[in-house]
Write a protein that binds this DNA or RNA. Sequence first.
DNA 1: AAGATAAAGAATAACTTTTATCCATTAAGT
DNA 2: ACTTAATGGATAAAAGTTATTCTTTATCTT
Lengths: 133, 133
Amino acid sequence: MKNYINSLREHNLKATPQRLAIVDALYINGHMNTETLYGLMIQKFSSISLATIYKNINIMIEKNFIQEVKLPHAKSVYELTKTSHSHLLCKKCGAIEDVEINLDVMIENISKTNQFQIDKTDFVLSGNCKNCQ
Amino acid sequence: MKNYINSLREHNLKATPQRLAIVDALYINGHMNTETLYGLMIQKFSSISLATIYKNINIMIEKNFIQEVKLPHAKSVYELTKTSHSHLLCKKCGAIEDVEINLDVMIENISKTNQFQIDKTDFVLSGNCKNCQ
DNA sequence: AAGATAAAGAATAACTTTTATCCATTAAGT
DNA sequence: ACTTAATGGATAAAAGTTATTCTTTATCTT
Ligand SMILES: [Mn+2]
Ligand SMILES: [Mn+2]
Ligand SMILES: [Zn+2]
Ligand SMILES: [Zn+2]
């Protein structure tokens, strides 16, 4: 695992044990919602407050350390910020996979056609994963 | 405007005045969140309950009459179900535009590459609209 | 290595958003 | 018209999120 202490500090976030545990959980699990994240954290820190989860999620989003991923018919999940990517969501088992899709050409076209300057995309493709079809 | 009385009935939804007003508002405004929708409805029906808004949104989604559109850093909006399309979201003024993007070839490729059967996409492109750049 | 201090955690209340309940009303089929 | 299941209104309850207060601590500065 990466050195998240410095990584947090570079984002002006104090490297507290709680915060490191959250980051670690996201690193290991990839995408988590507030509920599952709290469920995991309460095991490590028996007295951690749910408010701590929310406060950290919010400030880490603010500092661009993590990202929210909004999913159809499901709670949002959070993940460590990485290079821009899209998501595959299995409607049956709920699995979420990262997928690299090069959208540059498409964005360029849409940008011109619609006179719209695009600088971010949120792309979720839903269906059935390998194991669920 | 279309005949939404029959359209509702075809989806097994009783055509009540409240429901027709909601549909009409969505038809006119395109995309609305619960707050703005309630704000409009309360003008027409001074005693309408916020719960009525929620109940109708939920049942209309269930019957596939409307769709929820989840947006980054903003409340979800709702729209009448139409042919699959993507959305342009202006980060500055909040405007939402429909945009037709043919994703068939891309989906076909991703489907094969990832052994993932895709049957729905949620695609939001954010940036600055024509008036906001 | 202490000391100072701003940031963060825990506990809890408050607020926001959404859903459930109960009863009155009504759309729609007969 | 009559019947009935569905819906609306009022309200309470539940779920989700944020604010507040005080204590603790990570980090910076001696
Ligand atoms: Mn991801
Ligand atoms: Mn749309
Ligand atoms: Zn699956
Ligand atoms: Zn704009």
